[in-house]
Amino acid sequence: MKSFDLVFSNFGIFDLVDILLVAILIYLFYSLLRGTIAINILIGYLLIYIFYLIVKALDMRLLSTLFNGFFQVGVIALIIVFQPEIRKFLLMVGKNFKLYRNEYWYRFFVRNKTVRKEMEHAQIKPILDACKVMQESQTGALIIFAKNPEEEHFYKNGEEIQAVVSKRLLESIFNKYSPLHDGAVIISEGKIMSAACILPLTDNQDLPPYMGLRHRAALGISEVADVAALVVSEETGHLAYARQGKIKAPITLSDLERYLRKDLI
């Protein structure tokens, strides 16, 4: 009891701030790993470390020596393995600072909620209008919404476009006679970055039979990158939406608008 009182007698406001900052950093790092294959690597590393502690407690010298050698280079190994996530984390910190700064000025100058809603709707409307037409004509489409395209490499294997998102442009790209209709369109910050991009497919074997390559590519990219993916089925015209390794289908245009407001805006 005395030791308990001694610990908390020295506990100050900066200790509380210290704990909160560490908790925030852990949460941010976890949010980057969630839904990606990197979380499985981290869990595996932690399990090996727990096994090492057990071996050390049991005084198993040979295994302890082997694990000691492994963990001596463990920090370097983690930096190499998690290099994309560390880079993504640093990009996220810088980008969020920029976003919060822009949001401050946005709220300062655009106080009217109606005006803000109109600005948000203007970003989403071309996508919804194009999806409505493609649904009716059963034109297959795969659209990826990336927050930080500069940190992702999957969009670089397609044709660079760098054009403002518009209904007619999306319809033209996914027209079955267009040379760019196969593959995915990458949208970020209100622009079509590239088209005809080849994406990794998911290994998930539990998908319904009606989900084809577009659905598998949408789910696959959402498992390994911080993106959202929209699919228009060529067979049925139904919409599907993939995020963080999960896919929702079929969804309505109202559902799509709600998801885009949450993830895109």
Rank of each mutant, 00 (worst) to 15 (best):
L90H: 08
F71R: 02
V81C: 13
I39Q: 03
D59Y: 07
M60V: 07
N96V: 12
I48V: 15
F97L: 15
N96I: 08
L62M: 03
A38E: 05
L63C: 01
I41W: 14
N40Q: 10
I48A: 13
F89N: 03
L53M: 11
F67E: 00
V93M: 10
V93G: 06
P84E: 11
Y52R: 09
V55K: 01
I76S: 05
G69T: 00
L99P: 02
V73K: 01
V55Q: 06
F51Q: 08
Y49M: 12
F97N: 14
Y49G: 07
K98C: 10
R87I: 11
L47E: 09
R87K: 15
F71L: 03
I48S: 08
K95N: 13
G44N: 08
N96Y: 14
K95H: 12
L58P: 00
I54T: 11
K98D: 15
L53Y: 05
A77L: 15
R101P: 03
Q72Y: 05
I37Y: 09
F71V: 01
L42H: 02
K56V: 05
L66Q: 01
E85Y: 09
I43K: 06
L90K: 09
L66P: 00
I39H: 01
A38M: 06
L91I: 06
I80W: 07
Q83A: 15
N102Y: 09
F89V: 04
F67V: 02
K95S: 13
K98N: 15
L62D: 03
L91N: 12
L63M: 06
F71Y: 04
Y49H: 12
I76H: 02
F67N: 00
R87A: 14
L62E: 05
N102T: 11
G44H: 03
F89I: 02
R61E: 08
Y52K: 09
Y49W: 14
I48W: 06
L62Y: 04
E85T: 13
V73T: 07
I37P: 03
I37T: 13
N102F: 10
K88S: 11
V81R: 12
V75K: 04
F97W: 14
L47N: 07
L42A: 07
L90N: 08
V55E: 04
L42K: 01
L62F: 09
I86G: 02
G94F: 09
L63I: 05
I50K: 10
I50Y: 09
Q83I: 13
L58Y: 05
T65H: 05
A57R: 12
K56F: 08
I79Y: 08
I41P: 00
F51T: 13
F71Q: 01
L78R: 04
L42V: 04
V55A: 12
A77G: 11
F82R: 03
V75L: 11
V73E: 00
L62W: 06
T65F: 09
V73N: 01
I39T: 02
I80Q: 06
S64V: 00
N96W: 14
G44P: 03
P84D: 11
I43W: 02
F67T: 04
L46Y: 09
K56G: 02
P84V: 11
K88L: 14
L42F: 10
G94S: 09
A57W: 07
L99T: 15
P84H: 10
V73S: 05
F51A: 15
